[in-house]
């Protein structure tokens, strides 16, 4: 039952632009040295290092997503301070960072939900902010911390997302059914989304992101509040999507998950990229979690709060 669905989710529909199979296979295969080398800012010393170097010895197909010098400030606070990132096509890319690192802001700008103050976003080589309509057609998004049109039923919501993307009725109906099966939401297809639990809401939002078979999936905290069984199902779907040439970017707090699931990872903190590359390159022998703590810092020794133990006095 599940096996049928991801086949249908392969990026076949609106984009006949051939997904380059060799590169996709290579990138999905794991620790393969990127043609473009380590992306800019991998050392963390100078995030605004020369960007042209990354795309000069260009591979035949452009990366799925390329961010160049992305800046965004909110009032006084600089949320994203010049992020450069290259997400190769066909990669499963993890974006990790502490709270307030600028992950959501970066992903919002990368997907057309938030205007950058400066910088360029290239989606499969096309400038997203120069031609938003064309760029957004390639992307499926699961944003974090926003609502859905929750007075629709689950089935209606998927249908709505599909129709907004310009799919025809039969395609939408077919995919909505498949997605409801894949997300284990068939029994609740006709319940209003407002009455869904947090995990169910995540799943229906993910279904909406998938319905138009995008070439690039951007998922902000996709596994938050999702039960382990559903999470495993979703991981399978995503893995098969990547295997068939799609690109996935996930942000997460759970290092373990990223280490197991992703082939590439970028560590973001304070609006900068501290390290980026394949998972093995970034973790450099250690576990991703240890490496993350080492990069980001901020561990407090466990000797504070002594009074917390004094149960009586």
């Amino acid at each position: 039952m599940l096996a049928r669905v991801p086949d249908d989710l392969t990026p076949d529909l609106p984009n006949p632009h051939a997904v380059p199979p060799p590169e996709a296979a290579a990138a999905a295969g794991g620790p393969v040295s990127e043609p473009a080398g380590v992306p800019a800012g991998a050392t963390g010393a100078a995030p605004t290092s020369p960007a042209p170097a990354t795309d000069a010895p260009a591979s035949p197909a452009p990366p799925a997503l390329e961010l160049r010098g992305l800046w965004r400030r909110f009032g006084e606070k600089v949320a994203v301070a010049g992020i450069d990132l290259v997400v190769p096509a066909g990669s499963f890319y993890g974006l990790v960072g502490p709270n307030g690192a600028g992950k959501t802001t970066t992903l919002s700008m990368a997907t057309g939900l938030l205007t950058p103050d400066a910088g360029t976003v290239l989606v499969h080589g096309r400038d997203l902010w120069a031609d938003p309509v064309a760029g957004k057609a390639l992307i499926g998004i699961l944003p974090d911390g926003v609502k859905l049109f929750d007075r629709l039923t689950g089935e209606q919501l998927i249908t709505y997302a599909g129709l907004l993307r310009g799919l025809d009725r039969d395609t939408v109906a077919q995919r909505a059914r498949d997605l409801l099966v894949a997300m284990d939401l068939v029994a609740d297809a006709r319940t209003l989304v407002v009455d869904y639990s947090a995990g169910m809401t995540k799943k229906i939002a993910l279904a909406c992101a998938l319905v138009h078979a995008p070439r690039l999936l951007v998922l902000d905290e996709p596994f938050e509040a999702v039960d382990p069984v559903s999470a495993a199902n979703i991981r399978d779907i995503l893995a098969q999507y990547v295997a068939s040439g799609g690109t996935v970017i996930v942000s997460s707090h759970v290092m373990d998950l990223v280490q197991r699931m992703c082939d590439h990872v970028a560590v973001v903190a304070g609006g900068h990229v501290l390290a980026a590359g394949t998972v093995d390159e970034v973790r450099a022998g250690a576990s991703l979690e240890d490496r993350f703590v080492e990069l980001v810092g901020g561990r407090v020794s466990g000797e504070g709060l002594a009074w917390l133990r004094t149960s009586s006095d």
């Binding site: 629709l152 039923t153 089935e155 209606q156 249908t159 709505y160 310009g166 319940t191 209003l192």
Partner: peptide, 29 residues
Amino acid sequence: SSTARSNGIGVLGRIPATPLGAVAGRCLV
């Protein structure tokens, strides 16, 4: 919570299958 359920996809199944129809149908719901 009303735990309202609806039959099928309601209005969204009857509007023309275009983005314009979708927006109108969703607003009508």
